[in-house]
Design a protein around this nucleic acid. Structure first.
Lengths: 172, 172
DNA sequence: TATTGTTATACTCTATAACTATA
DNA sequence: TATAGTTATAGAGTATAACAATA
């Protein structure tokens, strides 16, 4: 095994001039595919595409499912905390919560301790939706990782999380 | 070595309830970090942040550098081809080319074969900019991969490219 | 007919300032 | 004074339809 045409790039030399002739356009894309940001971007795009079409029946976008899962794992959290964990701005999360509320998946209970904030939670309908979503999600994850061995997939997560925690802690 | 608290997720079971208590918010983010799309999203965000700040002196956004690198590797290409390789729509690439042209980095030569299309190329100033950019890019790539061994970084690229080519070919 | 570049446009995503009510 | 939620708004990014020139 381990016999593919894998672009790898020496390391800090993101350049190449071989007639890679990849893609459908007949273009040499080699200039980009040893750059991490662009590789992540393209990979994310194809994964997103599968996600969107797979969750279309539930009318759930990725970020919405993210919110529901975080609320379920952290009942009673405040909007600010969920927004921060999702990596979006608080004002933008308000709109999202408005919709999730309107559709009956979440509820904002006024907190007793701090009456400025809400304690977020899932409604029974929200729980039911997440149950369905988790099934779709499992199928999605299996599908997008189909070309990876389980150990390779685990290694991928380890490497991605390592990059992320390495950069978000030490601020250059 | 290999002793970290690495979230890995069994596989198609992206669920967990341990008191992970990660991040600065004290929130259990475990619900998301075994989902590939969200992990890619967060990793991409921190890498993008470094990229943006590092290329600020050149006033170059990632997609613009991507265009310059593709044009350099594929001189004479048409706008449609570069746009497709970048994964953006042709109409949106027109605006981008307008700016790169205006700033003197690229030129659109009317093609002889097909007078509908342009043959794209870098100007000397464009070449000079790319030369500077490649230095910054090398520093950027080294910085964001600092937590990875060279072999781990290569493996990361292999896995990402494998996912992407696996999904973009077989259309579910 | 089909394709290249283009314009116009709309929709989403993202980011910031400023307000209110609480603390 | 500071913080949680909110409103308004502006800027990217992204997507589609339709047109003129050319094939």
């Amino acid at each position: 095994m381990m016999t593919r045409s894998e672009p790898q790039g020496p390391f800090p030399s993101p350049d190449k001039a071989e007639p890679d002739a990849a893609a459908s356009t007949g273009l040499n894309q080699g200039a980009l595919d040893s750059i991490l940001l662009f590789t992540l971007r393209k990979t994310q795009a194809v994964i997103m595409h599968d996600f969107i079409s797979r969750f279309d029946p539930l009318d759930l976008r990725p970020i919405q499912l993210g919110a529901l899962l975080l609320i379920r794992s952290n009942p009673g959290s405040r909007q600010s905390d969920i927004a921060a964990a999702l990596g979006i701005q608080r004002p933008n999360f308000v709109t999202m919560m408005d919709e999730l509320d309107r559709r009956g998946f979440t509820q904002r209970t006024t907190s007793n301790n701090d009456r400025r904030s809400y304690a977020l939670g899932l409604t029974p309908q929200g729980e039911a939706l997440v149950t369905k979503a988790l099934q779709l999600l499992a199928e999605h994850e299996t599908y997008v990782s189909a070309t990876l061995e389980p150990a390779e997939r685990r290694q991928l997560f380890v490497n991605l999380h390592r990059i992320e925690s390495g950069l978000s802690s030490g601020g250059r």
